[in-house]
């Protein structure tokens, strides 16, 4: 075999590769399939094409957390990821905030948010997944089991974070009290009252996040 007689097999391979690359540029198709109506399972999924285990696409909406603004606190514009309510209370140059945020439940999120608070807001070392059970305490919101974590940062004027977390129908709600450690200690009672006043809506059709 020499360069004046190029093997046709390689030429065909060349064309095949070019055709494959061109085919890769095609758009993904829109799919259609029927599915049987079935009971809803929030974690196990609720639709299946033919040949798969059939379940339901339709289901009641999840419950949601109903927030009552804490007395004496000013409403603030939510700004953080998944945040949908925020309140603040100031005393001189000390200001403490209560924020309520909601994220889709996912085990990766808990460690991520705890470490974000510890590293970027409190100046603490991050923890490992295995450390989580040792830093959280049991709590309760509207007779539902919840979790609480309290952290005090480092430095001369440490910040403190007190968070109550509730898993509710596939979402995790984070209720966070954050501010200067001494101010947070004074306002812990307000925060606990705020948490005690939270209500959970009934299962409903149609929904807000």
């Amino acid at each position: 075999m020499n360069h004046k007689n190029p093997p046709r097999v390689l030429s065909l391979a060349l064309l095949t590769v070019i055709a494959t690359v061109m085919a890769a540029c095609e758009e993904e198709p829109i799919r259609h399939y029927p599915t049987r109506k079935h009971a809803f399972d929030a974690h196990a999924g609720h639709d299946h094409p033919p040949g798969h285990h059939p379940t339901d696409e339709t289901s009641p909406q999840p419950r949601k957390l109903i927030v009552t603004p804490p007395a004496g606190w000013e409403p603030r514009t939510p700004s953080g990821m998944g945040e949908f309510a925020a309140f603040a209370k100031a005393d001189g140059d000390r200001e403490t905030k209560i924020t309520v945020s909601q994220l889709v439940s996912n085990p990766r999120m808990l460690l991520m948010v705890i470490n974000r608070w510890r590293s970027s807001q409190l100046g603490m070392d991050p923890i490992e997944q295995a450390d989580i059970p040792s830093v959280i305490q049991p709590a309760q919101i509207a007779d539902l089991p919840a979790q609480r974590i309290t952290m005090v940062g480092t430095g001369d004027a440490p910040l403190s974070i007190d968070v109550v977390m509730l898993d509710l129908d596939g979402a995790t709600y984070y209720l966070k009290l954050m501010g200067p450690a001494d101010h947070v200690a004074e306002l812990t009672g307000d925060f606990e009252t705020f948490v005690a006043n939270l209500r959970v809506s009934e299962t409903q059709q149609g929904g807000a996040p």
Binding site: R31, H32, P34, T35, R36, K37, D47, P49, H53, E57
Partner: peptide, 27 residues
């Protein structure tokens, strides 16, 4: 719990589910 499908959390998709039929849904 039983998982019937895996989720690719890097991509999203829009599902339209027609529940008009009494015995099945169209997706």
């Amino acid at each position: 719990q039983t998982a019937h499908y895996a989720e690719d959390i890097r991509e999203f998709e829009l599902a339209l589910i027609d529940t008009s039929q009494p015995d099945r849904d169209d997706v």
